[in-house]
Design a protein around this nucleic acid. Structure first.
Lengths: 192, 192
DNA sequence: TAAATTCTGAAACGATTATTTCAGAAATAA
DNA sequence: TTATTTCTGAAATAATCGTTTCAGAATTTA
């Protein structure tokens, strides 16, 4: 009897995500979002919710995509060590490839400290990422490709936090060589 | 003939800084600032300027204080290696000691990517910090306390970027032990 | 075709934004 | 005291904020 939803929600979420990505949560207005999503303001509120709910969907979608890509990448390598090296150097390339910040990092520093819901979501995302990384690190240790005196979870955390530092450096200096060198230094340190 | 300025500007800047520190630039309103600074709105605009100018003064003041403290700390150590170790472990303690974010990091991720003036200022601050760190690292190398096959400037950058990663981890997990362990891992890596 | 439901666009909402204005109180120096 | 200048508080400004409302067009199933 009734008319049904015309737009693809995921598609719209992705457009919104790009706006948040560029401007950050607070600097993004509903007008910006309506314009970018090419969706009716009423439809937005009716089907997705308010600004905060939309943002939550965006960071979930952002992470899910990143995680999917990551798992594919690691699966392509027989050796866990090689997978880690590929993963790290790809991250270094990714950091210098886009001039906007990183939605995840931006969110952690701008929103997470004061927004419990966002913090919890980012926390969950981060745990999934770290756990996956730790499993790969553990595999490298088990296969004798890596020094196993160190805790795998700590190593994973160490790798993940490095990425954030690199992004900070790149935002300020926009020097790709620096990022490359730091990634090489990390790899060197990890594999002793 | 004329009446003179009654308030201490530095004092007021520091109060404003604390508000930006807690809420970030975009989430802070002029009303918040006027309330916290206990200053007249007109006086604020007449003597300091608009929100952006006030913010610039805040991040300059923030960095100047941090740098002063840092130099004092390093000066207290005969050995450059010991100074570095003290510096790194103090930073780890500092990160877990306050629940608000870090004004510097927050600014880099939230504002710097889209605000040229802020980015330049943060860039300058960062260079001063890294240069000072690099000098200390070089001293440790010259004194044979440290492996000198690595570039001192790169090492300095590597140390500085680590701090940001730790803060990210602490915002999410609020786990002091993790930060302690990562700082110990960094120290271990740096001094081979 | 007719009834049912949803989408759409625009307008309206009240609250808040950063900034400016201005009359008068306060303090200074002659 | 008086003239001069600045500080102060409150009000006004115009723009924008996130959100809601609503009449009507569009689409669907019966």
């Amino acid at each position: 009897m009734a008319r049904c939803v015309e737009f693809n929600e995921v598609e719209k979420i992705e457009k919104a995500m790009n706006v948040f990505w560029e401007k950050g949560y607070n600097a993004t207005s509903m007008q910006d979002l309506v314009d970018a999503m090419q969706i009716n303001r009423s439809s937005l509120y009716n089907t997705i919710g308010d600004k905060h709910q939309l943002f939550m969907k965006c960071i979930r979608n952002y992470f899910d995509n990143a995680m999917l890509e990551l798992k594919e990448k690691v699966a392509q390598h027989e050796s866990a060590k090689e997978a880690l090296i590929k993963l790290i150097s790809d991250k270094a390339d990714w950091i210098v490839s886009c001039d906007k910040g990183c939605l995840g990092m931006k969110t952690i520093f701008e929103i997470a400290p004061d927004d419990c819901e966002v913090r919890n979501q980012m926390n969950k995302n981060n745990d999934v990422f770290i756990d996956f990384l730790a499993i790969t690190v553990q595999k490298a240790m088990d296969d004798g490709e890596m020094d196993d005196t160190e805790d795998a979870a700590l190593m994973a955390e160490y790798i993940a936090t490095s990425f954030t530092g690199w992004k900070q450096s790149y935002i300020l200096h926009q020097n790709p060589i620096k990022i490359k060198k730091m990634s090489e230094f990390l790899i060197k340190n990890i594999f002793k």
